[in-house]
Design a protein around this nucleic acid. Sequence first.
DNA 1: ACCTGAACACCGTTCAAGT
DNA 2: ACCTGAACACCGTTCAAGT
Lengths: 194, 194
Amino acid sequence: MRLTRESVLKGAFAILDDYGLGDLTMRRLASSLGVQPGGLYWHFANKQTLLAAMADEIVTGIATDSLQDEPGRWRTNLAGITETFRTALLRHPDGAELVAAGYALRPGSGQPAQTMIKIIERAGIDPVDAQAAAGALVHFVLGHAAEVQAHDRLRRVGGLPDPTAPAPDPEQVFRTGLAIFLDGLQQRLDLPQR
Amino acid sequence: MRLTRESVLKGAFAILDDYGLGDLTMRRLASSLGVQPGGLYWHFANKQTLLAAMADEIVTGIATDSLQDEPGRWRTNLAGITETFRTALLRHPDGAELVAAGYALRPGSGQPAQTMIKIIERAGIDPVDAQAAAGALVHFVLGHAAEVQAHDRLRRVGGLPDPTAPAPDPEQVFRTGLAIFLDGLQQRLDLPQR
DNA sequence: ACCTGAACACCGTTCAAGT
DNA sequence: ACCTGAACACCGTTCAAGT
């Protein structure tokens, strides 16, 4: 069968889902597609480009899907994309690590961050602070999701120190962190603008 | 010269500081120490263990140094370790990535997180929320520092899209994110406890 | 245009054998 | 106890040559 950019991406996600990011090598991907390693480089310049395309696919569509832009309801809207962002990251194993690697290159880019900035600006925060706030939120979500998935990976390999240890509910932990941050943001809006 | 655990660590930091985490390989470390690659494995079980030891060294001493535990001044204390944590990460190239890799394994561990939890608890937040809050703060700092250092690395290699682009001051961005988070935490304390 | 074959320059890790 | 020599099983990437 002939290779396409899409079939390569599909094969890459199959390996990611079944074995994780650590097993996603160009050679392994090639052999799973019945092709020589060099063949992949016709469709993707290098591994980094392939991973970036995967990260894009994970994150694409989040913004428009979850943003019901009702003015005056910034908190609901912001909590919405943040939750959707988290869910998208958790959909594939090591999704957070994958997306984070791309975000390191072009920081504030990516649909989620851009949409967050818009919401925060429209709520009444000045652009500079809005960008900083969105960045902080993105870091929180990525870090949180990466931690959850690292835990998943350890359990998968059976390398957990104590599998019966009382682990706190990640969903609960996430909501608490998010609530604290939104409270801080809300306070800036309630205060008289200088 | 005879190898010791300390001399291996020292050599590893030398490569990290001069060339970055990407160039820190066991083989390169060995040759810089005038030794065969296999020789390193007498002192460290594997590369992961070596990196964990480096992460520990970066983070160790933060807590006690910066925590002047003045009760009733939780905000100052918390801002203090957070800033110190950030500075420690930025001291070595890719320090954030290095420490984050270790944190993924044992989430809430590490001196900074533990000290943050203590401060937040003493301020009057219940233990479950305190742990979530500290986790969120750690994720924020790690993500922020990783972003700054990824930018540094790109500039070093000369791979920045536009070196004259107006980059926002990282210190300013950091302080804004931190302030928002601390405001949110403060509000939980001001509110009547349920 | 798209892929093969084959190589180049690397990795981390193991382990018998030496000192 | 501590390290060498040498191997094993991998990597990402390139590129002439084939079809």
